[in-house]
Amino acid sequence: MKQGELTGIIGVNGIGKSTLLRTLAQVQPALAGTILLHNTPLERYTSKELASIVSIVLTETIPSKNLTVLELISLGRQPYTNWIGSLSTADKEKIEEAIEMVGLSDLQHKKCYELSDGQLQRVMIGRALAQDTELILLDEPTSHLDLYHKVQLLKLLHHVAHTTKKTILFTSHEIEIALQLCDQMLILNNLDNPFGSPETLISQKQFEKLFPTDTLRFDADTNSFKVS
């Protein structure tokens, strides 16, 4: 993967998108094989070292929604703060940057339980940004959001990847939007798992094979799925 690119992972339910992402983040141990990060196996990193390289946004809801937006995003600085977690001026700048980038400056003193799903998702992305890692992994960041917010969120990720030169990897079921915004895509199909730019994958007719054609077919002219 290249720096500063937005990569989408797609595939049918249960194919292992989340498992892949969670393994990459070392939230769960690898089922098989080795993952190399900067040519070093992932297990060799301590959780603290990894925390400054990889950050995540998961599908699970956070247990405490009593945190304010600012408090939650500040937690992203944990890998860099001292034992008691006090924030330095540099930390505070990073936090402010992250809040601005996800457009939450007006809401930063709100409690998380007061936010909509879309806003909360942006808070979680802000926290990952504050963690200031080269790689950000997001597991289905667009679920539970309406079409407008889905597009808004993926556009945000696209913008973040290109401006901050961070590598962003996300799983999604929004193939049509992802086609328009991703730099690279990975299709999990249990066969050859093709990886490439949306244009290449379309020309290889990879999307035609994604779903059973008697239910759904891919229309290459409009880059969208049609009910058969």
């Binding site: 070392q26 950050s55 405490s64 963690q131």
Partner: peptide
């Protein structure tokens, strides 16, 4: 934020 997030941090 839950144990998974804690671990990732």
């Amino acid at each position: 934020l839950g144990e998974n997030y804690a671990k990732s941090m």
